[in-house]
Design a protein around this nucleic acid. Sequence first.
DNA 1: ATCATTGCAAAAGATTTGCAAGGTC
DNA 2: GACCTTGCAAATCTTTTGCAATGAT
Lengths: 167, 167
Amino acid sequence: MAKDYSLNEVQVSMSPGERFEEYLQSRGMRQTQQRRALLELVFSRHEHFDADTLIEQLPAHGESNHVSRPTVYRTLNEFVDAGLLRRFSLAGRSVYEHDYGYPEHDHLYCEKCQRLIEFQSEELTRLRDQVAAENRFRISGHRLIITGRCESCSRTPRRTKRKQDRI
Amino acid sequence: MAKDYSLNEVQVSMSPGERFEEYLQSRGMRQTQQRRALLELVFSRHEHFDADTLIEQLPAHGESNHVSRPTVYRTLNEFVDAGLLRRFSLAGRSVYEHDYGYPEHDHLYCEKCQRLIEFQSEELTRLRDQVAAENRFRISGHRLIITGRCESCSRTPRRTKRKQDRI
DNA sequence: ATCATTGCAAAAGATTTGCAAGGTC
DNA sequence: GACCTTGCAAATCTTTTGCAATGAT
């Protein structure tokens, strides 16, 4: 299910931390405890996450390395700005994933277990470029989400009624 | 820019109104002034819209055929449920478009003028089905959004800094 | 010392919900 | 008349912001 990260890794010269440091310096911004803690947490694993999930995984309010909610949001925006993370909207909220050093890919989204499964397709890139050319459109990116049920959830009876999905 | 609706129209036996009526009856729900007004407005033109835009286009508070905000949201959910409208998330809010009787398509999204341009691609459907098959994934639908700049916005200098997009 | 950053509280934007009054079948 | 719907107000959820205190360079 999870893609083989190393096989398709894009060549990068800096670690996410180094790249972020450069980003901060170039803008007169500062290294802080909070930014370091979040960078570490975010790049400690390769998963999709939203702001709330990230906050849950942070040390609790009061413990060291805790980061307040507004700062989490602020820093996620910085990561996106710095090209470290990519963001997209799913079911009404923002979902984040690694961007820096990670190959372009798209997703299968299981409406039952809510899991995102990655896949890569060069054909899609070609198709995308062709459509854009036909429409004289200057591409900055794309996002394909195929919705449905993953293999294991297909074996299960119909899902129970849940809050309507807003893809 | 706008697709030729009639050329690719899917064969349908009922009008949106008839279909919605059937949906209501089958669930013991009622025809109301508000549902009629919204159905009429929504199917009077083929455009993408969000709840707020729709509300702006409704008769003002006090005039006949006005519909309250909560009822607009409730009814949009019903339209989606009834298969009349399709919904997706763009820049943090829900966008709606005709579904019933309208062919499957995808979008180019101009980050500058925020316009959605439709396109159809059978190749994409094939690609999607193939990816799903490879992952033993049972498809219910998909959504491809190509972001960038439309032709006319490409001729313009860089866009001014705006609230970050959350595709 | 200067100026960016944080946390708090509060605001803001989108959407939903409880409930009493009103409308539809 | 039964019971679904509406509108209002208020709640909820996600994300942002003003501002005084704190921290980084």
